[in-house]
Write a protein that binds this DNA or RNA. Structure first.
Length: 274
DNA sequence: AGACGTACCTGACCGC
DNA sequence: TGCGGTCAGGTACGTC
């Protein structure tokens, strides 16, 4: 599921039910996801007091006791649900029992997600986080930055946006949607977009992410239900998954075009995006 | 260094 | 109904 807006929505929803609670029990129902769980993970979780929940790009960060941080990535198919105790289901890989009796479940059919554990002091240097680009919703992410970050890159603009070193948290959907809003062709060479277009793109990225978070936030209560229903942004997608259909307000006969870039589907309007 | 293909997994969907 | 093929929101690694 998860790009930045979904992880942020999850973070906010989980903070309500997790922060301040103690973990009574941590059940690891297998030894790995994308890679092995860190050593003694269950022991470190068990008994820990949960602090604030943070986010960096698509990584969810859960403070434990005074110095621990649980790092969690949802991969392609990861979900976290919270609710009353019930038997673990298929693909529920990690189940936490909190001191109010509720269960937090990490479910991930494809197992591209991961869990790791570090300390607050080491967090910024953690290999998973050290090379991430700026948070697009924080100050400093603008046309000047983007121009510099993309300088010299010959890869298509769309592919560059998926590079987490350029900007943290964009995935395939929102990269497509942001380019549509900025009216920029995904095929344009990344290193050659220029200051004005870069500023347009940075603003479009911010706008699409903020709207998606707002849409997710509106169904926040739903999200933390046991069924994991999530306020995804899909009803507002202008181009993603809409091959052959018109983009909003567009009269081009062809409709949204789908191409493959670096092995990923890209959706765009060839008339409005140049 | 940067760009590309491939691998990791399961599930949903489509056409036959 | 079943079967094979294709595709999927992400990242890491090897190779050129």
């Amino acid at each position: 599921m998860p790009e930045l807006p979904e992880v942020e929505t999850i973070r906010r929803g989980l903070a309500h039910v997790m922060s301040g609670r103690r973990i009574l029990r941590a059940e690891l129902r297998r030894a790995d996801l994308r890679r092995p769980f860190p050593p003694a993970l269950a022991e470190r979780l068990q008994g820990a007091r949960i602090g604030a929940l943070g986010r960096r790009g698509k990584y969810l960060l859960i403070e434990l006791d005074d110095d621990g941080i649980l790092i969690l990535h949802l991969g392609m198919s990861g979900r976290i649900t919270a609710g009353a105790a019930s038997p673990a289901g298929r693909h529920d890989h990690v189940v936490l029992t909190l001191d109010d009796g509720s269960h937090i479940r990490f479910n991930d059919p494809r197992r591209f997600g991961l869990l790791d554990y570090t300390s607050r002091a080491q967090l910024a240097r953690h290999p998973l986080l050290a090379d991430l680009g700026p948070e697009p919703l924080e100050p400093g992410f603008d046309g000047v930055y983007l121009t510099a970050a993309l300088a010299g890159r010959t890869t298509p603009l769309k592919s560059a946006l998926l590079d987490q070193r350029v900007v943290a948290g964009l995935g395939n959907i929102y990269a497509c949607e942001a380019l549509y809003r900025a009216r920029l062709s995904p095929r344009r060479r990344a290193g050659a977009i220029g200051r004005d277009r870069a500023a347009r793109l940075a603003a479009a990225i911010r706008a699409v992410l903020e709207e998606a978070i707002a849409a997710g936030g509106s169904s926040l209560r739903d999200y933390v239900r046991a069924d994991g229903g999530l306020g995804y942004f899909q009803h507002r997608w202008a181009v993603y998954g809409r091959e052959g259909m018109p983009c909003p307000g567009c009269d081009c006969a062809e409709g949204v075009r789908r191409i493959v870039q670096a092995g990923r589907s890209t959706f765009y309007c060839a008339k409005r995006q140049r």
